[in-house]
């Protein structure tokens, strides 16, 4: 007889469980849940709205502080288009996230449930990646605007080269640190929240593939 069969023999006999009475159950009903889905929801909503705040700031910042007046028309058009696109994409992400979140039902089978939770989270991850690209694009546009404002094109080739190299280095360093920071953030918060779900989901799909 293997171990599990031995356990099975005792499984139903072994009724040494506590008896939780009606009053105790009733009090439990209104306790706040500590479920992973709830935490993922909170973190996601905060991230989505931080992203929205960033977008708003980007809009404001690029309008006021950059050398607007000196920007050529093509740069203004690109800048404005990015603003509009980023808002459309942000609202698309927010909509997709809430739609995915409300699909989560604990009465589904386990695989579908895990899939639904992870799908809602995946939307937010894509949104964060999108914001990183947006930061890098905004840095690039800011730099181009700066270069134009300083009339660099009128200066000597040597000076132009120097400015160009300086700008590329500055943008790369900032981009590098932003991505590092994001990766650190993911390790800190995201992986802790989703690790268990990922592991369990993989465990279920592994065999199916």
């Amino acid at each position: 007889m293997d171990g599990l069969d031995l356990l099975k023999q005792h499984w139903n006999k072994d009724g040494d469980f506590p008896k939780v009475n009606k009053e105790e159950i009733r009090r439990m009903l209104y306790k706040s849940s500590s479920s992973l889905a709830k935490w993922i929801f909170f973190v996601s909503v905060i991230e989505l709205f931080l992203g929205l705040a960033f977008n708003a700031w980007f809009f404001f910042f690029s309008d006021v502080e950059m050398g607007r007046d000196t920007d050529p028309l093509w740069l203004k058009i690109i800048d404005q288009s990015i603003n509009v696109i980023s808002y459309v994409i942000t609202f698309y992400f927010i909509y997709t996230f809430f739609q995915a979140y409300y699909k989560i039902k604990n009465t589904n089978n386990t695989k579908d449930l895990l899939n639904d939770i992870l799908a809602s989270r995946k939307t937010v991850n894509q949104y964060i990646s999108f914001n990183i690209y947006l930061i890098i694009i905004s840095l690039t546009i800011g730099s181009i605007s700066f270069i134009i404002e300083k009339h660099i094109f009128d200066k000597s080739t040597g000076e132009m080269m120097l400015y160009a190299i300086f700008t590329i280095i500055a943008v790369s360093i900032m981009g590098f640190f932003i991505i590092k920071l994001m990766k650190f953030y993911f390790r800190l918060i995201y992986i802790r929240l989703v690790n268990k779900l990922d592991k369990n989901y993989d465990e279920l799909v592994q065999l199916e593939d």
Partner: peptide, 20 residues
């Protein structure tokens, strides 16, 4: 089972379980 597999997050600190 779904709660145990997908939703439950073990807490390190003592939480506000009903006094039972």
């Amino acid at each position: 089972l779904n709660t145990a597999i997908s939703l439950y997050r073990s807490k390190r600190n003592k939480i506000s379980t009903v006094d039972w």
